[in-house]
Design a protein around this nucleic acid. Structure first.
Lengths: 331, 331
DNA sequence: CTGAAAGCGCTTACAG
DNA sequence: CTGAAAGCGCTTACAG
């Protein structure tokens, strides 16, 4: 196995019979280099399969060509989608991706501190960061983009760019559909209280009920897992007659609720919806709102690179649409 | 928002009234520094929330404290699990993780070339690399670990360390169980021909049939998706009487086969098994072999770090067990 | 158009 | 125990 020791700029220069400066110039394209020399250098580079050390280049230029993504997880399809989106945009720009996955609040915060202080990236994307992080003052000179989270306007975090989804419009569209197909009594299996998306969805639910005199609505929560959804639904069904429609925070919750419905012989008798639209919703043929995960990642990365490449530090915000899926399965 | 410009070693030294050398020494712990000076330096570091530039440190030490993982994907639960495992081990060692996801063979190979030539990592983990890569001569001086793949002994790739699963033992255990519960005629819905795991499983199937005189077996394939599994099963059931047992390459395939069985009124009449054991198998209550994804990642990372920290370049190999799940649902 | 030199932020012999 | 100096692999003014 050819133990091709990594060559340096200097060695390439030697081989090409010229100086480091010149090799650097042909590498970076900018300045003029005589065609002859350029050709020779390029040939040596090709022969040696040489690529410059991007760490050294980063040191010298101050530009790292690397961005970090710190994510609250990876196993969930949501994270995978977002990260894939980020990766696509980074690869297109020949940038590297530093990935870290917070195992819990504490580890997430530690990763964040390390990444911003060790100065090895040009910018950071935070995917669903824990609330605890945003209780701390924002103290980072790097461009940052926040996904799926919109911090309260304090501690300086409100100056950070965001990519979010329009939970209110999405949930309202879902509720309108349910209403149109006859539902009048609703229950919302809400998500965690510290989750931005969950809060928004709950508010949309409240608003819908408040603006429809002929409708009644209850809220139960907080659930995000299938088991918890099941539990809450069992509990709910014991005390209440079944409603016309059950609007769940996400697909996992809906899956649990569905099981409870089945156990109570209510399958097909209650309209039910989820949110996310992954494998689970597919399998269950569940009406749901499609979370544009990959799009979120792409937008976040594009936004971060635009921030990195510009001197304008004003925060940018992008709101993406949640698309209703399988609405025909509602009735 | 405090625009805390990143401080350098030099500035810390100034603030502490000492030299860069000394600050570096307290940072790296090794050499002796007088308690007084050390305390002062540590205080300044704490006050300023200083962390050394790991890129600069890497340049100077030759050690990058960063490893790369190049993966064939991310959306699949398998990839997510492996990467999570790698991340855990890296974080424990204060190493960073450079992640790239190959969109196709070509992009995977390009990522590989870039990573090994740009010299910004100490080692590389390849997760399910495409065959095309291993047709090229192995030319990399960095430690490398291969997950879920074992290249043919050529082009130097056989000198690379691997972490794999014991497909033969796993599948054989599954077949034995099926046999014990009465199955005598088998069909294997095999996976792709260029997939290491698929090949191993197919071989195990062949061996089982060959060593059981009283059994018959057929192989159909190649499938890895649910749709393809469905298609193949429909096709198969048209021509053949249904067998006692259907052994599928993975859970997705099994899911498709299950649908075909249902359409033919055969639900519950054929023993069926998958492999992977993720959300899908859970939902279907499918007997399956559990792929230890996170463990694969952890082992691969641990192996890579041991390779990085040692001068012994001999390849290491680790084989993990596939654990049968829900065997009670077999009959 | 081209090269010598300084500098990016560290570490580590080498002399005190 | 501590500091000045050289060096890691690049880029980029600065002089030719």
């Amino acid at each position: 196995m050819a133990q091709a020791e990594k060559l340096t700029l200097y060695e390439i220069a030697e081989l090409a019979g010229t100086s480091k400066s010149t090799v650097s110039r042909v590498l970076n394209g900018g300045d003029k280099v005589s065609p002859k020399v350029k050709a020779r250098v390029m040939q040596v580079i090709a022969e040696q399969n040489y690529m410059p050390s991007i760490a050294a280049r980063g040191l010298s230029m101050g530009r790292k060509n690397m961005i970090a993504v710190i994510s609250g997880g990876i196993s969930d399809g949501y994270f995978a989608g977002v990260i894939r989106g980020i990766d696509i945009e980074s690869e297109d720009r020949n940038n590297h991706l530093l990935c870290s996955f917070g195992r819990n609040e504490e580890s997430f915060i530690k990763l964040w501190q390390g990444v911003i202080r060790q100065g090895l990236v040009d910018g950071v994307i935070l995917v669903a960061p824990p609330n605890a992080l945003m209780q701390q003052p924002f103290d980072c000179e790097l461009p940052v983009v926040l996904c799926s989270s919109r911090p309260a306007p304090n501690h300086g975090w409100d100056q950070v760019s965001t990519v979010t989804v329009d939970n209110r419009a999405g949930l309202t569209a879902m509720l309108d559909k349910m209403y149109a197909s006859g539902a009048r009594s609703f229950v919302h299996f809400a998500g965690p209280n510290n989750d931005y998306d969950a809060i928004e969805r709950r508010e949309a639910f409240k608003t819908f009920i408040a603006t429809h005199q002929d409708c009644s609505g209850q809220i139960t929560g907080a659930t995000k897992s299938r088991d918890k959804g099941y539990e809450n639904a069992v509990h709910f069904l014991k005390k209440h007659p079944h409603p016309d429609a059950m609007v769940c925070y996400n697909d996992s919750t809906a899956a649990g609720v569905l099981t409870a419905l089945e156990e109570n012989g209510l399958t097909g008798k209650v309209k039910i919806s989820g949110c996310d639209s992954g494998l689970l919703a597919d399998m269950l043929q569940l009406p749901t709102l499609k979370m544009p995960c990959e799009k979120i990642g792409r937008e976040a990365a594009a936004m971060l690179f635009s921030l990195i490449n510009s001197t304008d530090r004003r925060p940018q915000h992008k709101i993406l649409t949640l698309t209703p899926q399988r609405m025909d399965k509602l009735s």
